[in-house]
Write a protein that binds this DNA or RNA. Structure first.
Ligand SMILES: [Mn+2]
Ligand SMILES: [Mn+2]
Ligand SMILES: [Zn+2]
Ligand SMILES: [Zn+2]
Lengths: 126, 126
DNA sequence: AATTTAATGCACCTTAGTTGCAATAACAAA
DNA sequence: TTTGTTATTGCAACTAAGGTGCATTAAATT
């Protein structure tokens, strides 16, 4: 179920995601906010914001969970994937704006596609 | 570094991967083999087999690490991705045989691509 | 057989994420 | 505004994946 009450903690997280397009790991959020709310609260709010469609999540290259804004007009799965990029040097992780066209997979009923590009970002490539 | 000695434990794992094309999670292997070797040994052998190119690994939808055979002729990253499928009902996880063509990503230097299809397998879709 | 050292077992650790429950605070009704 | 309902939070304890240090074992080589 989604968020039912605009608590201080919910507002705080919404503000953070309102200020960036980058993905942020749950771990980082729990760390950064640990003076303002319990880590359990962070995890629970993220879950609720994802449920209601405000955020979306994915698993990064190291198995950590990352969250980012959901584009309002993001449709469910057609035949394209919303890709993420993760820098193996600095860890920066982003939603890519392009949608990647994925050909149909024979034999399986596909619900969603996770597409993760791993490489080096601008800053680290120099 | 890769495997230097064909120990009993190494042979056991090689035999297992010699008998299937499915991916197997490290957790499952450690469980199944826990009478025959320590879980630490399982994790270390998997790491070495991946280092030497015998196996490859990826992170599944729940953040677990999965291993599967490496096709001998698998090139590094050109512009295609080796996709995996994971059934959200029964957890079955497989390497797909097709290579998916991925268009170049502007702005980033990409080293590898992780492509995970999540859906329902034949058995679970009925 | 003796030597070398890669590989293993074990005990312990680290970290991400979850759970149960009592206390708190949105929010709506009175 | 006060009161009542219950969503949300904090806390402490827990689970599970995976990793580490080190003494011991066992491949492989001489
Ligand atoms: Mn995204
Ligand atoms: Mn594979
Ligand atoms: Zn970077
Ligand atoms: Zn299935």
């Amino acid at each position: 179920m989604g968020v039912k009450r605009k608590t201080k903690s919910v507002k705080k997280l919404l503000k953070i995601f309102g200020q960036t397009n980058s993905a942020i790991s749950a771990v980082k959020l729990a760390e950064d906010l640990h003076q303002e709310m319990n880590k359990t609260t962070v995890y629970r709010i993220l879950e609720r914001l994802e449920d209601e469609g405000t955020l979306h999540s994915f698993i990064g290259k190291d198995g950590l969970k990352w969250y980012a804004n959901n584009e309002k007009d993001s449709a469910p799965y057609h035949s394209f994937a919303h890709p993420h990029f993760q820098c193996k040097s600095c860890g920066k992780t982003e939603c890519l704006t392009m949608d990647i066209d994925i050909p149909p997979v024979p034999k399986y009923k596909i619900d969603s596609i996770k597409l993760l590009f791993i490489g080096e970002c601008d800053d680290c490539a120099s």
